[in-house]
Design a binder for these strands. Structure first.
Lengths: 349, 349
DNA sequence: CCTCACATGGCAAACGTTTGCCAATATTTG
DNA sequence: CAAATATTGGCAAACGTTTGCCATGTGAGG
């Protein structure tokens, strides 16, 4: 009785909230077969007579049937979905990773769920917890999560890191060792005797790798390397960074990433400092815009799209008995793109 | 028998593929209550004694329990997930929409699924079909889908369009009527007598609106408006576009979007043409980079983040009995950002 | 003609939740 | 103190699939 009342508004001539979607049962009934046959017609083509199959598919088509991924996921345990988590979707650096992952994922017939951790470890962990049971795997780009948390997450879900390494977790990383060496050699070739590094966020793994690489390369090349920061990895932080550089009298500066470098460039222009005449500027990433800022930025390019695609590849290739395994990091080459923001040390021919 | 063989590798002392995730049943058993109580402890706090609830939550925590969104979705019919489909994730214009949508969605406690249609209507339709049964709604940004397909999709899922209008489907659009008028008035004020529009993809709704607005405004202001194209909405197409402009002898050019405009700028610089001395260039969108390209680009800014956020807002506010309703388009203001790429008509004081 | 194997389709039990309904208490009311 | 009413917890039926197992039919080999 209560029901009748409760449902009356719908039962009346009001149109239903939305057209009901056809289910496998509808198709089975219309085709005169069992639901199992319909299911198999879709997922196990060899398991059903091809005439029956053709009939079922035809009926399904006419009913506009599409399998419900949720129900499939629940029963089969596979959601055909992978999650990609990045610190900031708007950062053009991650746009490449996202695009690469998206393409690899959709080529494999899967769906990508995107998470934005807003540069926060807490938010990142929340995403991983929330999404975990609903996805077949994770790609965490530039993860800020502590090793321990990553380890536990990797136990529950296949997980691949991009530009972050952590014991026992597979990862795809850029070859910063060679890359930073290229940068330092380039500066040395231009006659610079020292440079300063404008550090990014303290928890950034790639930031740490970059600085470590720069230091090692500087030692080998006989250059002095200093460090300022940490700075936020975006353009707004460029002003403070540039001012610090100017005060230090450095002739060359390597920024945590291109966003910061571009911010530095703007500030230097504002203060009438000639680049590369007075100061050389190098960035990391070769993001969109690095080639048309002023002056165009010398930067260490990463194949971010490749990184995204390779990460998905690794994820899908992960063996089921992966617990406690040791994984070799997949290292992607970098490339120094020399543009106009670097030049000879001032006062040198 | 066969099974035993098949499963032997797992049945042996090899560690299980992944640690099993705790389910609501595990929690119920450990807490000595029924599964329904656990469920309600999470979703219906008032429906259960707060002491019981505290106990359940504690046990759940100690077991590392997180509700399985898939199962929740299947039973309740709500997936707490919305899908956002864009033509190209890497385009910084859409990055704003994505970010805005992401924030609105995560603030509402939902999950965002991102789809990249790769500028293809077919791919877009495939995404909508595939994702449809698994999400609570769609936001389609710059959709290329025909009205008819949109109508059907809107019957099956709540759906909101961004920068696209279609009968019977709610949408969020930029105010191109005023925006284009601002552009034309700006050019007229600088003494230009005419301009050419560099058109984008033929199926682009916003492209059509932009051109229509420009024509109307030009007529009112007494300017001649010509049109070239269609061009791809990216930098690579800028060269061809710029060459066409140069051949035409135009003094001002309005590009379909900033990406194209920046491409045009590069080509003009390459060919030694002074901007704005010889030609003025205007873009649309005010994307990342428009302020630091050379010269900085005059462009019509849209609040893309707002657009994403508003779209999600509208989606969540959609009444259940939305069939056949008429929806008012939600119009977002635009703003002309005048930078250095526009100047007086050559040969004028 | 009998047996055996294989191809094909159906039955029914999961998968992990939510939720309508009812039963058992605890609390208020008359 | 009885009766009415809240409050609280449990039972069991969904939700739309997949899949192990069984039943039937068909053709081949002996």
């Amino acid at each position: 009785m209560a029901n009748v009342c409760q449902y009356l508004p719908y039962a009346a001539d009001v149109p239903p909230p939305a057209r009901r979607r056809a289910t496998i049962t509808d198709v089975a009934r219309a085709a005169g077969v069992a639901t199992s046959t319909v299911s198999r017609a879709f997922t196990r083509p060899g398991r059903v007579n091809h005439r029956t199959r053709a009939h079922v598919l035809e009926v399904a088509e006419s009913l506009g049937y599409a399998p419900n991924p949720t129900a499939q996921a629940l029963e089969s345990g596979r959601s055909n979905t992978v999650a990609l988590v990045v610190p900031d979707i708007t950062n053009p650096y991650f746009a490449g990773v996202i695009k690469g992952a998206e393409q690899a994922v959709s080529q494999a017939g899967l769906t990508l769920v995107l998470g934005d951790s807003q540069e926060s470890a807490a938010q990142e962990e929340r995403l991983v917890r929330r999404l975990g049971p609903a996805v077949d795997g994770f790609v965490l780009s530039a993860s800020r999560l502590p090793d321990e948390v990553l380890r536990r997450a990797a136990e529950l879900n296949p997980l691949v890191l991009v530009n972050r390494a952590s014991p026992g977790v597979p990862c795809v990383v850029a070859d910063y060792d060679h890359g930073t060496r290229q940068i330092v050699d380039h500066l040395a070739a231009l006659g610079h005797r020292s440079f300063v590094f404008l550090g990014g966020p303290a928890e950034s793994w790639s930031g740490a790798r970059r600085w470590a690489g720069l230091q090692a390369a500087a030692a080998d090349a006989g250059l002095d390397a200093g460090r300022f920061g940490p700075f936020a990895p975006d353009r707004t932080a460029g002003a403070a960074a540039a001012d610090a550089v100017l005060a230090s009298g450095a002739t060359a500066v390597v920024a945590h990433n291109d966003m910061l470098a571009i911010g530095v460039l703007s500030r230097l222009a504002e203060r009438g400092v000639d680049v590369p005449g007075e100061i050389s500027v190098v960035g990391f990433d070769d993001v969109f815009g690095a080639d048309f800022c002023h002056p165009p930025l010398t930067t260490l390019a990463e194949r971010t799209r490749d990184a995204g695609a390779r990460a998905i590849e690794s994820l899908l290739a992960l063996p089921p008995d992966r617990a406690g395994r040791d994984f070799q990091a997949r290292v992607l080459p970098t490339q120094l793109v020399v543009r106009r923001s670097t030049g000879p040390r001032p006062g040198r021919s």
